[in-house]
Simulated scan of single mutants.
Amino acid sequence: MQIIVHNTLPILYDAFTKRFKAEELLPRFLEWAESEQGFISLVRNAKGRHGFQDFDMLSAVRSDGIDILEAQQQYGLFNPTRSLEATEWSFDESERRQLADRIAKTLEILAKAVPSRLLPDRLVVAIVPADCANGTLMMNGSGISCYGRAPGYLFVRIWPSAGNLRRLGYILARSFIHGIRRTARNEDSAISLGEAVVMEGLAAAFIHTVFSDAEFPALIHFMPPDDWGETLAELAGYYGKTSYDDVPINIYGTRIQAGSFRSPDVVPLTREELQYACELIIAHSERTEANIVAAYLYGDPLLAAQGHPTFGIPHLAGFEAGYHTVQRYLETTGIEIASALSLPWRDILEMERK
Score class of each variant (00 low, 15 high):
215 E>R: 15
180 I>D: 04
202 L>P: 04
181 R>K: 13
200 E>F: 10
219 L>T: 13
198 V>G: 00
211 F>L: 07
220 I>W: 07
232 L>E: 01
211 F>Q: 09
219 L>K: 13
201 G>I: 01
212 S>F: 03
236 A>W: 05
229 G>Y: 07
209 T>Y: 10
227 D>K: 08
184 A>C: 07
218 A>C: 12
220 I>E: 14
213 D>T: 12
225 P>W: 00
202 L>Y: 06
236 A>Q: 13
193 L>A: 05
184 A>P: 08
229 G>I: 05
218 A>D: 14
233 A>M: 09
213 D>G: 07
227 D>N: 10
187 E>C: 12
211 F>R: 12
234 E>I: 09
216 F>D: 13
188 D>T: 12
208 H>K: 14
194 G>F: 03
196 A>L: 07
194 G>E: 01
205 A>W: 02
188 D>Q: 11
193 L>C: 09
212 S>Q: 15
194 G>Y: 00
212 S>P: 01
191 I>V: 14
219 L>M: 13
208 H>T: 09
182 R>C: 11
200 E>T: 12
213 D>H: 15
195 E>I: 06
216 F>N: 14
208 H>W: 06
234 E>P: 00
206 F>P: 04
198 V>D: 00
218 A>T: 08
202 L>N: 06
212 S>D: 13
216 F>S: 14
200 E>H: 13
203 A>H: 05
223 M>G: 00
197 V>G: 01
188 D>V: 13
217 P>Y: 10
206 F>R: 03
201 G>S: 11
231 T>I: 05
180 I>V: 15
222 F>N: 05
201 G>V: 00
201 G>R: 03
182 R>K: 10
236 A>F: 11
184 A>E: 06
217 P>G: 06
237 G>E: 02
234 E>C: 07
217 P>K: 08
184 A>H: 05
229 G>K: 10
193 L>E: 01
234 E>Q: 14
231 T>C: 12
224 P>S: 08
198 V>E: 00
202 L>A: 06
198 V>R: 09
207 I>H: 01
199 M>H: 10
209 T>V: 01
229 G>D: 15
232 L>H: 10
203 A>V: 05
210 V>Y: 00
179 G>N: 08
227 D>A: 06
192 S>E: 08
226 D>S: 12
210 V>R: 02
226 D>F: 05
209 T>R: 15
203 A>P: 07
215 E>S: 15
180 I>W: 12
226 D>A: 14
208 H>Y: 11
189 S>I: 04
194 G>C: 06
205 A>P: 04
201 G>H: 08
222 F>W: 11
199 M>C: 12
214 A>T: 09
235 L>T: 05
183 T>Y: 05
206 F>L: 01
228 W>T: 04
221 H>W: 01
204 A>Y: 00
230 E>H: 09
199 M>L: 13
235 L>P: 01
218 A>H: 09
197 V>K: 09
214 A>K: 10
220 I>C: 15
236 A>L: 08
217 P>T: 04
217 P>N: 09
236 A>I: 08
179 G>F: 04
236 A>S: 11
228 W>C: 03
189 S>M: 09
191 I>M: 08
231 T>A: 14
195 E>N: 10
185 R>I: 14
